[in-house]
């Protein structure tokens, strides 16, 4: 299945869109991109509507990004997580931990 990621700038935010199956085979790439994005911006949103599966190594990359933002006074948001992502977030109650928004405008306004 098609999978990949794409980073774009939107004003003072960076948006990392990832899609397909996020698993051990490339979740470390996602982690690296999340951390590299914070070298350039203070606010990062990860767009997850196209993610058909995410394992716990993928979730770990998101947790690390969020922790990084909090420790450096930046912002972190998840945008439009698919049902597949939500199911895994809920397993660890992370749906109550991550800031989750439908789109970037909502994240900005929060």
């Amino acid at each position: 299945m098609d999978k990949g990621s794409e980073l774009r700038r939107d004003g003072d935010w960076a948006v990392l869109r990832i899609w397909g199956e996020v698993d051990l085979s490339w979740s470390q790439d996602v982690r690296r991109q999340v951390l590299e994005a914070y070298a350039k911006v203070k606010s990062l949103a990860v767009q997850l509507d196209g993610v058909s599966y995410i394992d716990s190594s993928g979730i770990a990359a998101l947790v690390e990004g969020f922790q990084h933002a909090r420790s450096k006074g930046g912002r972190f948001a998840l945008l439009a997580p698919s049902e597949a992502v939500r199911a895994v977030l809920e397993l660890a109650r992370l749906d109550r931990v991550f800031p989750i928004f439908t789109d970037l405008a909502a994240a900005r306004a929060a």
Binding site: L24, S27, Q28, R31, S56, S57, I59, A60, A61, V63, E64, A92
Partner: peptide, 13 residues
């Protein structure tokens, strides 16, 4: 995997 990922994955479980 790097140690940070290992720590987060195992504590998630």
């Amino acid at each position: 995997l790097d140690e940070t990922t290992i720590r987060i994955m195992s504590r998630l479980k």
